[in-house]
Design a protein around this nucleic acid. Structure first.
Lengths: 234, 234
DNA sequence: CGTAATAACTGACCGCCAGTCATTTGTTAA
DNA sequence: TTAACAAATGACTGGCGGTCAGTTATTACG
């Protein structure tokens, strides 16, 4: 009796095609401007059908966003599973997030919807649970590296790994959000290149959580954040 | 001929009453959920009249928000005009922003609308200009303190004041945004108190931009970020 | 005072959109 | 062939931002 199984596959396939259509429209227009009619059009289905598969526009949105979280998680997992020294891995996590920002800008943009619950009106309980779960996986990668750094003595033992992960993530995320939305503004009104700001912020924070031993060991790496300046001076 | 002047005053008064009404509704419901009919109701005017005074819902929203920027600016200005040492002023700027966050949460929330241009659809050009101008004033307070710190030798001369202001502001802002929206989440899912995170993040960043001389001079101040830990250990 | 001109205000109305549901179309089982 | 069920539809509803023809209040003037 393969019939129910085939039905199940077809249903799953339909679900994915709806996400594909939704992604296309959301990427182009953002949450607000995208309409369910457009998504239905793109999916070659009627609007009513969308609601047989997803509870609300917001649920659909978060489902697309989860793809982004998964991509980011994979990038992080690839970094933390290398044989590189812990400190290097930490730098690479920062780089990976920046890379994600540049390569998957549309997903990155979706993230800040998730961060502002004022827009979570139409989101179902289960969808929130799913997102939290995926989110946790990403956090665990960062926290894990810091934890290992402390154990092997390259990261200060008096800092809390979770707190530190939040600090590192917050500053990176905040600066990249600026880059996305106000790059020109900062360039023109404040004569500041946010690219530099990100590098320097990461450098400052990283240096401040390393042990003295690790600072010596990775001196070249630590200078990286300031290299643009150095070249200018020479 | 005092009549046109009186008319002008009355018109201005009407404008303010509309903002008061809008503020009440926006504080209660947020941008999305608030309706122009509600605001009209609160202002005891018809909806059409609102549009004689403000171009759009978003313009009205930003007008309310500007009150918040002004409050923050005044708090910053009060800090930077004291006789305190520059390093202390810098710490106090961080404290002032946190105080603003706690005392004027509703205004703080409005700020992150401003940071995400995807919602700026209905905002008029002049309104954006006004906001930028007010924003600049706040930035100048922070940058000015850092600048003076460099000049007097308490802040590292190799850092850029503007970049550093952006770094300090970004991390503070990011963590407070978390506090506002996901305090419980971080407490329950990650066993982290964002209050600690903010203090430690500020402490790390501050220490990393001071000169060695200043670090010695303000040792007590620098320990502040870690005091909760110290007490726990004792 | 009466009236014309102007300013201030109103609320019914428009277009748009998320979400619903009675109905239709397609599929399976007997 | 048909009954039972599943899948899909699109006309419809309610709510909202924004508009504008029309009403009311205010001022200026003969």
């Amino acid at each position: 009796m393969g019939i129910p199984e085939r039905k199940e596959r077809e249903k799953e396939h339909r679900r994915e095609e709806i996400i594909n259509a939704a992604q296309k429209v959301f990427f182009e227009k953002g949450l607000q401007a995208a309409t369910m009619d457009e998504i239905a059009e793109a999916a070659e289905l009627s609007k009513g059908t969308l609601y047989l598969y997803y509870k609300s526009k917001e649920d659909l949105y978060l489902t697309v966003m989860m793809r982004g979280i998964e991509i980011l998680h994979n990038m992080f997992a690839a970094t933390t599973s290398t044989k590189e020294p812990t400190v290097v891995q930490l730098v690479q996590l920062g780089d990976a997030y920046y890379e994600f920002f540049k390569q998957h800008r549309n997903y990155f943009r979706m993230f800040y919807f998730f961060q502002h619950p004022q827009f979570h009106k139409g989101v179902s309980e289960d969808m929130m649970m799913n997102c939290s779960e995926e989110n946790q996986k990403v956090w665990r990668e960062v926290i894990g590296v810091i934890q290992r750094g402390i154990e092997e003595g390259t990261i200060r033992p008096d800092i809390n790994p979770v707190e530190t992960a939040v600090i590192l993530w917050s500053s990176s995320n905040a600066i990249m959000t600026r880059m996305d939305t106000q790059l020109e503004y900062f360039k023109e009104r404040m004569s500041v290149d946010l690219d530099d700001v990100l590098r320097k912020s990461n450098a400052l924070l990283l240096e401040s959580i390393l042990t003295d031993r690790a600072k010596q060991q990775h001196r070249a790496l630590l200078l990286r954040g300031w290299s643009a300046e150095k070249i200018e001076i020479n």
